[in-house]
């Protein structure tokens, strides 16, 4: 299973980005091999609908799980259609630490879905 996390850097243990749609990159973690790769977020500089484009990229990548601090309702709609599940990251932890917390069942499903960008 591939787990996606929006991150702000590409280093060894990057911080979780503050937003989903406008994150710089996504860390794509394969929990079977323990390998990960970095996916550039092409939607980062989008003038509108960044969440939707980012969600489309995550869906297309084949990820099944998303760990994120927050998610807009537009992006959530795309992710839900593809059957992705969304968990809320712990703001005190890095991306790798959040992955561990997720495996240890310490993260909760994201319930607060905020209003999306309105494209204007």
């Amino acid at each position: 299973m591939i787990i996606a996390i929006p991150v702000s850097g590409k280093g060894q243990n990057p911080a979780v980005a503050t937003s989903f749609g406008r994150a710089a990159h996504f860390l794509m973690y394969d929990d079977e091999t323990g390998q990960y790769k970095i996916l550039e977020n092409a939607a980062m500089g989008s003038t509108g609908g960044a969440g939707i484009q980012a969600a489309q990229a995550i869906v297309d990548s084949g990820a099944e799980m998303l760990l994120t601090p927050q998610c807009g309702n537009n992006a959530a709609k795309v992710l839900a259609a593809a059957g992705l599940r969304i968990y809320k990251t712990d703001p005190g932890l890095s991306a790798m630490e959040n992955l561990k917390a997720f495996r240890d069942n310490e993260l909760e499903e994201l319930r607060d879905i905020h209003e999306g960008y309105h494209g204007h």
């Binding site: 937003s19 509108g48 905020h114 960008y117 204007h120």
Partner: peptide, 11 residues
């Protein structure tokens, strides 16, 4: 309450 406000609130 439009789009720029939502972007402001992020983070």
């Amino acid at each position: 309450i439009g789009c720029p406000v939502i972007a402001t609130l992020s983070g």
